[in-house]
Design a protein around this nucleic acid. Sequence first.
DNA 1: ACTTTGAGTGTACGCTCGTGCACTGAAGCA
DNA 2: TGCTTCAGTGCACGAGCGTACACTCAAAGT
Lengths: 219, 219
Amino acid sequence: MSARVSPSAARADTSRQAQKERTREAILAAALELSQSQGFAQTSLRQVARHAGVVPTAFYRHFASMDELGLALVEQSFGTLRAMIRDAQRDPETFADIIDASAEILVRVVKQNKAHFGFVARERNSGSEAVRQAIQRELELFISELAVVLARLPHLDTWSAEDVKLASGLFVRNMVYRAEQVVQMPDGRPDLEEEIKRKARREMRLIVLGFEKWDSHSG
Amino acid sequence: MSARVSPSAARADTSRQAQKERTREAILAAALELSQSQGFAQTSLRQVARHAGVVPTAFYRHFASMDELGLALVEQSFGTLRAMIRDAQRDPETFADIIDASAEILVRVVKQNKAHFGFVARERNSGSEAVRQAIQRELELFISELAVVLARLPHLDTWSAEDVKLASGLFVRNMVYRAEQVVQMPDGRPDLEEEIKRKARREMRLIVLGFEKWDSHSG
DNA sequence: ACTTTGAGTGTACGCTCGTGCACTGAAGCA
DNA sequence: TGCTTCAGTGCACGAGCGTACACTCAAAGT
């Protein structure tokens, strides 16, 4: 196991494993695009291969089955989601008004990654058993991660871990719903976009008001 | 479960239209059952016909396409949902503690109609264009109907129509999510069932606390 | 008693599908 | 340099698909 990729820059790498990687990416991209219009389950191995510019049997050099491809797409998609959170936490605007910033970031990032978020939304309930479970698991993980962030907020810093997770779940599920709307939104409609942001903000505010009262409530 | 309906058997009604209706129901039931295990889009016309006990071409005597069948299933499913609301409003228990009653009714009714609720959850994001739009429309309608009920509750009776709908939307989306969980729940696990009810109750309570504060909030 | 109607049948067609198998030819290594 | 490896090719197969078309035969209408 020596260092694989030699640092010869400039022109395209013609090495064997680099070419293989390129084909793999082409297959992933093809599957993602075809999924957008017809759903992953209706996307055939042959369609993917055709779109990626390879012969059907070449598919098997990269994935043992369409199911395995699906799992790779889940991983890719949640990579995008995690990048979104990381960016949000770096952005100083986030701490100024966490709700406004969240709505803003949500719409912007989902719009930039419609394919990935659309994939998750679609396959969450309708994918194969393996894909569905992978998504549920990642989503649970994401709720837990957000809970850690929320736990540092005023009002929530005294809550039990379970209560914070409940709040996190409410937020994530609403974000998922609004993300679904953004994915389905036609291009070039800033009015719809603003409407979604506005609704997302109001919903989050309503939930936050619940937070504030929960403090003195279950004491 | 092939549900062949033979016209020769001893039967209450052997009239032509009654027999046709029976076959139509068999097709709907077959499609619903096959959808549960493999999704509606992966269910072929031939599979449905086989399951319903008719020859493939007989399918066309009832539906012009699988898409039309899908729309009929949407209608059937939301009929079930509306029946749930009607029952809930009749039940005196509902007014004693609306949250406890809602959680109870939600789990009970969804468990009794896993096929219909599962169909809606699955096809809401992944069905054909027509099916997806039909579900979104029905869901919007349902949110509006629930809003009318909510508008009569304390705290909410002074809210604007838009605010009530926002609250209704939050409730419905959480119910949809918990319904998805009930559908995926394995049989004979009253512990999981109780856990879902408990979480649903706590979420609803948190949202209701938001209601109470929203009153005195600027809006 | 007759004709008409139409739900359901049976055959046959041209597709696309996943996948097994033998292959090619360039990259990579000794 | 010559040998090995393996990503990608090309072909062939059996199976399932949607649906066109001509049909049967009992209920419904006259």
